[in-house]
Write a protein that binds this DNA or RNA. Structure first.
Lengths: 206, 206
DNA sequence: GCGAACTTGCACAGTGACGTGCAATTGCAC
DNA sequence: GTGCAATTGCACGTCACTGTGCAAGTTCGC
């Protein structure tokens, strides 16, 4: 009857904190050592190995959580939305809410060793986006010389660029979400005015 | 009277080949060891140290060369071009010609240790682009909710995304340049039709 | 052909990280 | 307060990589 999967003692709290700190630390430096992570979590290196058998396992857990969160946000945001442009707008806005917590994904995605696994796990999410973009291109809502899969890459990298801009203080996190969304839409060929209006509508309604 | 800076014997040829191979190898894996690089260049590790005193020095040389090449291409392409949109188009097309040889920059840019130096060295190039974007935004040629510096980030990352798409075979390198240019322009708020026409004009003229 | 520059093939010390073992200690839970 | 799980502290062994030293080739220019 006791909850096993949810935290129920200091052990679980530690595990949770290690994961959170590891995320932040690896984001700062993708090569952060187990010792750096452990210290940052206020714990000894040996303890981390008590929770995760290897560095690989720790990162793997992190990636799984991040991908799951992103997929949830994406799926929830565009449930029952027919118009491709609106779907993209909602999706980007929703992802933005949580994505900067998970910039680790993008940072790690650039690294060679781990890249394979991440790509695989992100595949379903990307596939959704590709289908959405294809639909929009067919309908003429979008317009781009790039094929849908390439456009999906562009969208991902574009979000990352805006995140970096936020990091560097070029704009505030508050306005960044909507700005990013508008830019994603215009990059897909939606007229700037249309994109701006659409984003205003969608984001003001909640 | 003898040429010192230009290659004049097998030593220089080796040095050149090491640099070329290192670029490719580091692109594949930013953590490639000196041994991997040496072997790939058909040479022994010790020899590499004969040309470059340290790993750091090798990478530094690489980065310097890449930045110089990019700056040249950019400056040459938009010499005497008044219209911001056309200047962006010419610049992106010119950079594209050589940029995928230097994807290393982007790969390394993601890494923490080296990132500082690269950022600094890219700063003047970025500054040019920011000024150009500002001019276009003022004139109303561009239209974006993002401030010019953030838009510059977006453009950089966008090029990288298209490069990756090429890597993955989603589109051919031949068409990628123009497609990338169109996308950069539309992301800056230029109407899709205008962007397409402009790029067609500019790229057909040579 | 000769000499000088370049290259090779080792061997070495230093470093930093990973993953593991174990005894001692701490601190919740009950 | 006692017991048990978790945490700590330290000690290993291993591995991969960096940068250097040096003696023995090799190759090119002249």
């Amino acid at each position: 009857m006791t909850a096993m999967t949810t935290g129920n003692s200091r052990a679980d709290a530690n595990r949770r904190r290690i994961l959170d700190v590891a995320l932040a630390e690896l984001l700062r430096d993708p090569d952060a050592s187990m010792d750096q992570i452990a210290r940052a979590a206020g714990v000894v290196r040996r303890t981390v190995y008590g929770h995760f058998p290897s560095r690989e396992a720790l990162i793997s857990t992190l990636v799984d959580e991040a991908v799951a969160a992103l997929a949830d946000a994406d799926a929830g945001a565009r449930r029952e939305v027919a118009d491709p442009a609106e779907a993209v707008a909602r999706s980007v806005l929703a992802i933005w809410e949580i994505a900067d917590r998970y910039r680790l994904l993008v940072a790690l995605a650039q690294r060679t060793v781990t890249v394979q696994g991440i790509r695989e796990r992100l595949a379903p999410l990307r596939a959704n986006k590709v289908r959405l973009l294809e639909r929009g291109l067919e309908k003429g809502v979008f317009s781009s010389p790039l094929p849908a899969p390439a456009l999906a890459y562009v969208h991902e990298q574009l979000l990352f660029a805006v995140m970096e801009a936020v990091n560097d203080g070029l704009l505030t996190a508050a306005e960044a979400g909507r700005s990013a969304t508008v830019t994603v839409l215009t990059a897909a060929g939606v007229p700037a005015s249309t994109a701006t209006e659409l984003v205003a509508e969608v984001s003001e309604e909640s």
